[in-house]
Amino acid sequence: MSDDREAIFSRVRGALAPLRVRAPLPQYDTEIAVLRQVLAGRDLAELFGERIRKVGGLAFFTPAALVAHLRTGGRLHGYCDPVLWPGLAPHFGAGFQVETAFDRTRVDDYAFGITRAAGAIAETGTIILNDAATSCRLGALAPWVHVAVVERSSLFADLPQAVAGLGDDRNVVWCTGPSKTADVEGILIEGVHGPGEQIALVV
């Protein structure tokens, strides 16, 4: 093991020794990687709503609209982050069964999972999850519908800003639309291992 380490390091040094000049680290403005035309003069929450729809997701701006959508889809049994539930419960009327502890032995019982987002990226319609904000990773992943509650103040404009804002959380996940595949004949299918519906509730 440690022999392998020394052997690899020694081969790397040997391989690089003959180079008289090494390629310099490029200095650049991250503006080069920003879709400025998309962002110009836009309200970030409105743009985010537009962009998440473009990648196959949905955005709602009131809890009532979210609840109506879940009811229409017949998604009546789900999981909700215990911190969020007191605020959301009044909007969920009769007929819903919501659990605030996720039981991994019954992953298929939950039609939806509601968790907090750590932020979102307007440019790409991306929801940002992390370990600090997500009450349980499986609750945000296994149910067919995932609802991320996104606070307006946590919106990043673009990718470079979101990278700069990764913070010190050990697990940051950017979700851009529902889980998808095109492995079979290039035909796009949504809902592979993760959610088939990715929803943001912007508050």
Partner: peptide, 9 residues
């Protein structure tokens, strides 16, 4: 952007 971009620290 690909659907899941995970940063694991």
């Amino acid at each position: 952007l690909t659907v899941y971009t995970e940063f694991i620290g």
